[in-house]
Nucleic acid binder design. Sequence first.
RNA 1: GGCCCGUUCGUCUAUCGGUUAGGACACCAGGUUUUCAACCUGGGAAGAGGGGUUCGACUCCCCUACGGGCUGCCA
Length: 470
Amino acid sequence: MSSAPQAPVVTRFAPSPTGYLHIGGARTALFNWLYARGRGGKFLLRIEDTDRERSTPEATAAILRGLTWLGLDWDGEAVSQFAGRARHAEVARQMLANGTAYKCFATQEDIEAFREAARAEGRSTLYQSPWRDADPATHPDAPYAIRLKAPRDGATVIEDAVQGTVTFRNDQLDDMVCLRSDATPTYMLAVVVDDHDMGVTHIIRGDDHLTNAARQVQIYQAMGWQVPVFAHIPLIHGPDGKKLSKRHGAVGLEEYQAMGFCAAGMRNYLTRLGWSHGNDELFDDAQALAWFDLAGIGRAPARLDFKKLENVSGHHIAKAADERLLPEIEAYLTAVARPALTAQQRDGLLKALACTKERAKTFPELLEKAHFVLASRPLELEPKAAAALDAVSRGILRELTPQLQDASWVRNELEAIVSAVAAAHGLGLGKIAGPLRAALAGRMVTPSVFDMMLVLGRDETLARLNDQAA
RNA sequence: GGCCCGUUCGUCUAUCGGUUAGGACACCAGGUUUUCAACCUGGGAAGAGGGGUUCGACUCCCCUACGGGCUGCCA
């Protein structure tokens, strides 16, 4: 049936614009992107907007935004399936002409009556149109649908790159409608025509389309077109193993962006979810592109694991170059409608990245740790920080300040000075680090006090200490 | 109901007839430590159940159970 074309790979992602970009859809898009880009092929985007009731331009925009955030780029413009309706109808007529389809005058009521009777008698409810072999002379002057004259004997076989050989008995498949009685094409017809016209060689999509694939193959056969390679990937389930739905929390990709995961980590995690390359867990785009293949895709549905996502995200944040991380953090701020960074904060954050990115799993976590450089004097003290600055502590800070005044601003020396002052009071470094932390950041969860001093610089450090020493 | 797909530690997975069934995340214990982390060391943790095939099955076949999908003139 399907044979693997050796020509350049062409894949596509074909979402329905009826809402946000689903996390499962995002992974499907990612797999298609990896497969095509890893082989120098093309990755196309087609918006399946033939359902005029449910499709909205806002949803299309949200999907494109999601893909862009994930870092997936597509070739050419996103294609509107609805725009191709004339061509779809034309193909339906061709099938009529070559005898692989027929006009069906059955009404909605006829079909319903047929099904009810079938149910009552315990027969299959697959509709069998009386018009399949009707003499054209008996055709009424009424609207009709064009149905595929599907083979009744034998089987339709799919050689799926993930699921293996899947066989459907043809008597399990009915004559599907290709062109509705209002002359609009059905999804089943439109996908096949579009995939063929766009030269798609590999269809990588959700498992939920596996049965559809059999019907679609019949259309390819009716038109004498080459069948592409199918790869039906398992769906993503919620943490409880049930189909992923809104009650599991985040289903839309944008929610993940809002949670502050970095895009590179998201790609890594999603790629690894349902696909493997031996024991490799952490990898960058270049490796993913080189390693990704259809054979590595698993056959069972996978569950989302936020802990692991966090871990992977953290790994990528830690590895990212500062210059690249900063704009991504700013994009995150915009995405969650938080105030943009001032030029000063931007400068400060860039300097603070070195001591914050390695310990943050997400952007909000990183921003939390970088609070000391984002805040400006006079610092607002959190309750715990205020508590750490008791009279005794303030006294020690007062003693520390003049010594810092003349220090050369390098880590070793700062550490030596602070340790010496602590020792003079018979205290460990830990006892003095607390108040220092409080004075420098106004909080108790921060990077190392020495890192903060280095980032803040002498003047700002001294100013903050003086603010609290009084 | 019918058809189709799936089932290895809690989770993601490796294994492609012969392994003490490996790794990662999570978890537990210990270490390191100026907070939060990070990091280091160690630990517990799996082949859904039942039949076959085979000298030998997680790997192949069948049945059952469970999960999922499709069964529209939705996509």
